[in-house]
Amino acid sequence: MSKAPADLLRRIAQLEERRGLLIVFEGPDGSGKTTQRKLLKSWLKGEGHEVVTTKWSSSDLIKPLIKARKQVRSLNATEFSLMHACDFRHRLETEVLPALCAGKTVIADRYFFTALARDVTRGSDLNWVMNLYSPIFWPDAVFYFQVSPETSGKRIAAERKPSYYESGQDITHLADAHDSYREFIGAVLGQYRGLASIFDFVTVDAEQSIYDQHQFIRSLFKKSARKKWTEYNVAAIADWLNNRPEMRIE
C-alpha cells in the first residue's frame, strides 16, 4: 500500500482527472504492430482523441548515441540495456507523461517489456533490468501481438535484412543475419510468453487478417478500464514530479 504524502496523492488525483490513456503495443518484429498502431491512431483521431505516438529507441537526445554505437557494433549486453533504458526514461519524462497530463492518448510502439524480453535473452539479469525501469509507470492496456518465430522471420525476410543487433548476431555469433534472427527471435518469444502471463497482456493473434486484428483492438479499447494512477503509478509520478517543479502545484 502506498505511503505517499497526502499532498502528492492529491496532486496525482488532479492530474488523473484530465489525463489521457497510455496504450502499449508489444511483440516481436514482423508481428504487425506498426500497421495496427497506425490504424488505431486514425480511428482514435476520428473519435475525437488527440493522439501521440512514441516508438522504441526514438528520443532526440539518446537515439543518436545508440545509433552511433550500433553502427560500429560496440555495445555489449550491459551497455545495450543501459542505453535503451536511458532512451525510454527520457521519452517517458519528456514526451509520454507531459502528453498524458495534457489529456492526449499515447500509443507506445513497444514499452519496457521489449527490454525485458530482449535484454534477458542477451543474458542480462531480469531483476537488474527491471531496476533500470523502476519505478515502473504502468500503462492502461498492453496489446501483445503474438506470432510464430517462422512468421516473424518470413515477414522480416520479405522486407529487409535484419540489422546486427535486431538479428541478435551479437549473441548468436552466426554469420547469416536471417539464420541468426530465427534463432534469436525464438528465445525472445519465449521471454514474451512469460511476460504476457505475468503482466496480463491482451493477446492479439497476429496471424489473423489485418482487419480482424483491428476490430478486436477497437472492441477491447472501448472496454478497457483506466489504471488508476493513485493506485498503480504513485512512485513513478513522484519520481517525475521531483524533476518537474512546474508540474507539482496546480
Partner: peptide, 12 residues
C-alpha cells in the same frame, strides 16, 4: 535537443 536528461537518465 532542448530537453536535458534527468539525474536518473544521466546516472544510467
Amino acid at each position: 535537443c532542448p530537453e536535458i536528461p534527468s539525474p536518473k537518465t544521466l546516472l544510467m
